[in-house]
Structures are given as structure tokens and as C-alpha cells.
Design a protein around this nucleic acid. Structure first.
Lengths: 264, 264
DNA sequence: TGCAACGGCA
DNA sequence: TGCCGTTGCA
């Protein structure tokens, strides 16, 4: 059987809120390693990969590898019924057709359990190559979200250009154009505000803002986001979940990079 | 060229938010005097006149008079991308077809520039006669906004009647009628709450609440509003922008003044 | 479905 | 007083 206890149950709710708009149904893979999910979004353009390591849970038991197919929307609905400070326990039998979510309020005054039916879902598990990226930008997640949202009022795509000093987000649309430049900088007092650029060589790639805005739904999970890019490869937008794992989004670049690269 | 720097960039955003619902497209007139706009609303019923003096800017340069035609909606969209504490710089070439808005975050960590295409807009510049008004009421802008909003749930028009002691706002509709009377009073400790009436002779005029409610969008610009009236002349609803200028709205009275004047 | 105003909390 | 979370509207 599978049983996992998470004191910060709210984490799983945030995870579901950050995935359910992109993916309808998906398999959660439970193993002794942890609790993971990998899925393409409904339009088969972007890929989500989420992983919570077993040692991040307060209790974790998984006798046999288990693949639980769920409707992310319905699972999110159930997790909305959890109190903000509730402790979450998930349980599933090896041959069962459902998963149970138990919520315990901090003082045990209220205990709820919700059972969600499982579904059979075909899933192609894609191998994600472990790439050395040309450039990685670590920046405040809220700032990244804000930039993507702002630029979507002007255009549909964004050119992300990384140089060693900073990262520039640019777009063009009917009403005009926009550039937002964020400079690399550290602040010892406020590490959550730092912008760190780790660059082997400059990269500039164009992406559909629509997807980046969906990825930014994960902002509540971490106050920093890591954006990794290499020429002609999908960008990785990763939010680390402290002491537990991460959620990462992959999105292939648009082709017109070079054309736009010279724009101002 | 034209270049103007405003530390409180948020002021311009508030100005646009207060105009964009009334006017689609308009010309901003830049001159050594300052940055101004005058336009009729789309239904040609009311008039907006906004003026920011050059000395209110932190830097102001305008080599030649320039008339920049913009879509207020698009300009407002761009200004929404500005951070609340950002410093704003506007730039336009004399013969250019665009204006650039640059936003600098307080610590220069983030610099954005947005380019907005200019448009050719016919504008009849109306002369606004410098009238001595029969009565001027200065009152808290939030209170004026609240009264107009409240009265519009009852009726479509408001009779504003000024006597030396106070100002009465009255309306009538299908479900009943309403009067709100605000008394003149000063409070040395809280000047922003004072109601000052400067009256040569009593005035009572009727206006469409719909427009007053639009004017009240300027409430965030100032905590006081000045309402000036003379018999049979358009009312002026003016919000002062500290150390910089003002935005004023003009609206002609309805004709049925005398009929309603006796109403209670 | 996404944004804006409002109210509650820190 | 400022920020966040929620709710209501477009």
C-alpha cells in the first residue's frame, strides 16, 4: 500500500493549483523514491515534471510502485477542502481504485477524509535529458510572473535574452513594444530578492507568453524561480519546493529567434 | 525632442485611469509649459482638461511644441506595467511616430521601456472661459464619489444646490428619492476632511450622474475635489495634483433645473 | 477564464 | 498602513 503524511498539506494544494490549468488528467507515480508526476499539457506543447522526495514527507510508505491516475481538477477540488494548517495524509491500496486524502486540523479537532476515484490514463513517460544549460537565471518568482503578465498585454511571445549582466524580456504587438531588463544582483539580507545569472554563453530564445503565464501559477510554491535555457532546446522553468523537490515546466522555443534577436 | 521624468510615475497612471473611460483617443500637448490634454468625451457631452506643469517634473525638456496622439486605453495598459514606486520617464522625438515610457525601479534593478505607437487625431481645442463662479464647494473627493455612486442607485440625475451653509445633492427615481446634505466645516487637524463653501450667490443645477461618476475616477489623485458652478454654465469638477497641476471635468447642466429645485 | 475592487490580516 | 486573499464582474 501507499501512505504518505505531509504536515504542510497546503503544499500539495498549491501544486495542484499550479498544474490543473495545464493538464486535465495525469498519473501520480508513487515509489519508494517519492511522489512524482510527469505530463504534457492538453495541447501537447509543454511538459510538467513534479517531484516530491519521500524523505520530505513526515511519513512515507510505498510497498510497491503505484501509478495513480487522477483528474487533477477533481483532486484540486478536494484539496480545496483542506484547512490551511491541516496535516495531509494520502492513502491508496495497491490494487484499489481510489485514493484517500485525510485532513487533520492542527489540534485534531476536525478530521476529514475524501476519497477520489482513480482513472486509467495512458501516459507516455518522456525521458528528460539532463542538459547542461547555456544560461540559468535565478530570480524572484513574483517578478517573473509580473513580467510575463505585463508583457502579455502587449504581445503574445517573449524573447528572453540572457547576458552575463542581466536578462532582458522583450515583446512586440499591435500597440507597440516592450523591454524589461532585470539586472543580476545579490542582497545578503534578502536572498529571496536576488537575481543570479549563471551563464556559459549568451542565449536568446522566444516563447509563447500564454504558457509562461500558466507556469507562473506555481509562484506561491517558491519565492525564487530558475529559468534555464540552451539554444534550440526547451526552456526549463523550475520552482524548488524546499526540502522536498520541485516542479519544473518545459517549453520549446519558437523558431523566429534570430529574426527578433536584433530588435530593440 | 520631448523628455520628462516623474519620480512619482504612479501619478500618470492614475491620470490615465481617470480619463480612459471617458475618452478613447486624445492628443497630449507637450510644450515648455508642461504636459497637457484637452478632450471631449466620446459622446461629446463633457470635457476633460488636464495639465501638469513642467516645473512639477523632476526633469522636463521640450524643444518644440509637440502633439502626441495616443489611444488612452493602450497608454493606460502600458502604465499598468509600471511598478508602484517606479520612476517614469517619457520620451518622444519631434518627428517620431511613437512615445517611449521608461520605468525604473527604485534600486535600478529593473528597467523597462515600453514604446507606444502614436496616432493622428483631430482635436478641436475649445477655449475654456475663465469664469468667476457663483459658488465653489471644496470637499473630500471620496465623499463626493460616494454620494454620486449612492445617488445613482436611485436616479439618473442629481440636483446640486449650494447655499452658504452647505451643499445638497438630490435625486429622484422610480423607487423613491434621496437627498444628501453636506455642511460646510473646517478641521484644522484634518484639512483633507474640510468642506469649504465659497459662495457669491446660491446656485442649483442638475447633472447626469453617469458623468459625475466617471469624473470621480480621479478620486485617487487628490483627497479634495472642487466643484464650481454658475447658473446655466457647465459645472467644473476639479482635482488638484499637488505641485503639478490638475485635472478638471466640465459638464453642462440639464435644463429642468427650476422644476426640480422645489423637490425635497 | 482573467481582472479589479473589496475586506481582512499582519 | 500595506499586502494578500477572496469575491464579484467582464
Amino acid at each position: 500500500m501507499f501512505e504518505a503524511r505531509l504536515t504542510q498539506g497546503v503544499l500539495l494544494r498549491k501544486l495542484l493549483d499550479s498544474m490543473k490549468d495545464l493538464v486535465q488528467d495525469a498519473n501520480f507515480d508513487c515509489s519508494s523514491t517519492g511522489f512524482a508526476l510527469q505530463a504534457m499539457d492538453s495541447s501537447h506543447v509543454s511538459l510538467i515534471h513534479m517531484q516530491l522526495r519521500s524523505d520530505g514527507f513526515d511519513h512515507f510508505r510505498c510497498d510497491r510502485n503505484l501509478s495513480m491516475g487522477v483528474s487533477l481538477n477533481n483532486m484540486a477540488k478536494i484539496l480545496k477542502c483542506m484547512g490551511n494548517d491541516d496535516v495531509l495524509t494520502m492513502k491508496a491500496e495497491d490494487q484499489g481504485d481510489s485514493v484517500t486524502f485525510m485532513f487533520e486540523s492542527a489540534n485534531q479537532e476536525r478530521i476529514s477524509d475524501f476519497e477520489l476515484k482513480l482513472m486509467d490514463i495512458d501516459s507516455e513517460q518522456l525521458g528528460i535529458p539532463d542538459t547542461d544549460y547555456s544560461a540559468t537565471v535565478k530570480m524572484p518568482s513574483a517578478e517573473f510572473a509580473r513580467i510575463c503578465k505585463d508583457l502579455s498585454t502587449i504581445g503574445d511571445t517573449v524573447l528572453i535574452a540572457v547576458t552575463k549582466d542581466g536578462v532582458r524580456f522583450s515583446t512586440t504587438g499591435d500597440i507597440g513594444s516592450a523591454n524589461v531588463t532585470v539586472r543580476s544582483h545579490s542582497n545578503v539580507d534578502k536572498p529571496e530578492e536576488q537575481v543570479v545569472i549563471d551563464m556559459q554563453e549568451p542565449v536568446a530564445l522566444t516563447f509563447a507568453l500564454r504558457y509562461l503565464n500558466s507556469f507562473a501559477k506555481a509562484t506561491p510554491l517558491s519565492n525564487q524561480v530558475m529559468i534555464s535555457m540552451s539554444k534550440e532546446l526547451p526552456v526549463v522553468v523550475q520552482y524548488r519546493i524546499e526540502d522536498m523537490g520541485h516542479i519544473s515546466y518545459y517549453l520549446a522555443p519558437k523558431i523566429e529567434d534570430e529574426e527578433m534577436e536584433g530588435d530593440e
